[in-house]
Design a protein around this nucleic acid. Structure first.
Lengths: 357, 357
DNA sequence: TTGTAGGCGTTATCAT
DNA sequence: ATGATAACGCCTACAA
């Protein structure tokens, strides 16, 4: 564990100036092939790693983008992990950043201390991708004042920010349409996620649109809330069952994890899916294919969301004057068996996002 | 989008020196309450975020730990995501780092350009957690020369490094023991992951130990390889079926994802699980509970692995002279129905890791 | 092609 | 309790 070496040592060792070393390292031009070799070998001999802090300070750019996401925490009931959704977004972000030569810094805003964390991270990066739910509205606005921010999966936020989201409303509308027109279900129920989640609200809106279209009564509020977790979905389903003498013909859950929770409650209650009650989810997480019956759901381009967010951020970094943009990614209905369809061969309906820019 | 402000502006605005501003920001002492308020308000008014690059340069420490993991890439066949294993490790690392006031930088070594990436990341962080498989042996050694590294999930690497792993061998030994002694299966087959994966090799070793113990013939090599992916598992299973006139009574897969792939091949082949052939996995990913029949497997503390790795790294950073340590986390057999057990109530056998330090 | 030297924003030492 | 002022390691005009 020798002392960390610096550009000075490398310069001395290779018999050139630090300027030349720097040039060589940055793949620039303006040096002979011989010099290049000398520098490189001196560098490896010393095990020299350019100090990014110093470099960042000089070029005013860290080469790091931050990703802030909410930590839904370990669900105590099932010790299940928090939504896989986030993991995919992370992977997408990582991919896009790495391809662009940047790195990504991740931080989960565990409930409380979110704000401090956010500021701390803000100082370490060139810009931030913030997942909906990781920060309150005002803190978001605050932080966006001092560092470029693109918001992910949050509808109608501060209009001054770049935002990317998926067509939650359209996807849920299509899915519900399928339920009411293809299967002719008339007695449906909707289980929402967190009350303040814009994703959840958008999905509910799409659900209502489809019902209205079909001339069915449109509820003002969701029939239950399940917080987007498996345990929460189970609770909500149980609640529905307890409250009504007869179970709804179809229950539309705000995401897959809740739907999976609902499935087990229904099984425990002796109800068959989809024969007695149809069930649907949203997201198309891995388990959606594995669970029985396989879940009909709406696929959301989680990975692409992460990628797109990072792209937007890098664009903004490149050109701060660029007009704010909003990107809505299409979603896709995936029909499996839990909705009542026979074929296990998934049938897909692409969603056409409304507006964008 | 005003110009980024610096500590100088804050100092001027609050009528103190930069030294005092710095003191206040670091929660140090040595300033009056009034000064403190002045500084803080000046800072918020300006929307000042301390520049971490400058700070890092001064204190010689970035407050960032890097996490390098292999990108198994999007599997073309199924477009399935790479092992969820990594995601959990990431979450664990994030958690531990954040709790310690650090942040974590992630980077996936997409096949080729792994080395460059590694060096680039090395310059941005105080230390590195490297998942097995993300770097070749020599590059690892190389990089460990210039920055503290703790290796995750790789057995018997350079003895000079801190390493954390799970008791793969013990877990698989227990599981196999259950198969041969409780269920009395005698005709087993083993499907390995990547040939050079030490995790995979350890698991195979545990499998062999149990067979030997039971006086059964012990194969020199795995019966098939499936690369740890669902599609690979399916291929391997198919291979097994094609090669033998009669299917093995039990097939032990190196991880859950391959086991899930095997399950569908068996179903397609008209074989019942576990009645005709028993199947087991390893890891206990989320889908293991959801798939039918529910998968008997070995739970690996993925999240804790990530946490432990970060702890080890931070310890090392704190005290570079500290002796190298190796931590082996216990694994746990989870019995569900795919092995032939009746109860869907999981029965657990804790593993007692061999040595540690 | 190569070298010189000032500057990037903070911290920390030493005075006061 | 507070203020000058050297580092910290690298980049980049500007010169040569």
């Amino acid at each position: 564990v020798s002392e960390k070496s610096t550009i000075y040592e490398v310069a001395r060792r290779s018999g050139v100036s630090t300027a030349t070393v720097s040039r060589v390292m940055r793949n620039g031009s303006g040096f002979s092939e011989q010099t290049r070799k000398d520098v490189l070998s001196a560098a490896t001999e010393l095990g020299w790693v350019p100090n990014n802090s110093a470099r960042s300070l000089a070029v005013r750019r860290t080469g790091i983008v931050g990703l802030l996401f909410p930590d839904l925490g370990v669900d105590e009931d099932t010790d299940s992990e928090s939504p896989l959704y986030v993991d995919q977004v992370i992977r997408g972000a990582e991919r896009a950043a790495t391809l662009a030569g940047d790195a990504v810094l991740i931080a989960a805003t565990h409930s409380a201390a979110g704000t401090d964390l956010a500021w701390s991270v803000a100082g370490k990066v060139d810009g931030l991708v913030v997942l909906a739910g990781s920060l309150g509205g005002k803190e978001l606005a605050e932080i966006a004042r001092s560092v470029p921010v693109v918001v992910l999966a949050a509808k109608s936020t501060r209009p001054r920010l770049d935002v990317v989201g998926a067509d939650n409303r359209g996807g849920m509308r299509e899915l519900t349409r399928h339920l009411v027109s293809h299967h002719a279900y008339r007695d449906l129920a909707f289980v929402a996620g967190p009350a303040r989640s814009s994703d959840s609200n958008e999905r509910f809106a799409g659900y209502r649109e489809a019902l209205e279209e079909a001339g069915l009564p449109t509820p003002k509020t969701p029939d239950a809330h399940g917080g987007f977790t498996e345990a929460g979905g189970a609770r909500a389903m149980q609640h529905l069952l307890d409250r009504r003498s007869v179970a709804p013909r179809a229950v539309v859950l705000g995401n897959d994890e809740m739907a999976i929770g609902a499935l087990s409650v229904l099984r425990a209650a002796g109800l068959r899916v989809p024969a007695d009650v149809a069930v649907t989810g949203f997201d198309d997480i891995t388990s959606a294919r594995h669970v029985r019956p396989a879940l009909s759901t709406v696929r959301q381009p989680m990975r692409e969301s992460g990628e797109t967010a990072v792209h937007l951020l890098l664009d903004r970094l490149r050109d701060p004057e660029r007009p704010r943009s909003t990107r809505v990614l299409p979603t896709e209905v995936v029909l499996r068996t839990s909705c009542g369809c026979r074929s296990s061969r998934p049938h897909a309906i692409q969603t056409q996002p409304g507006g964008s820019t």
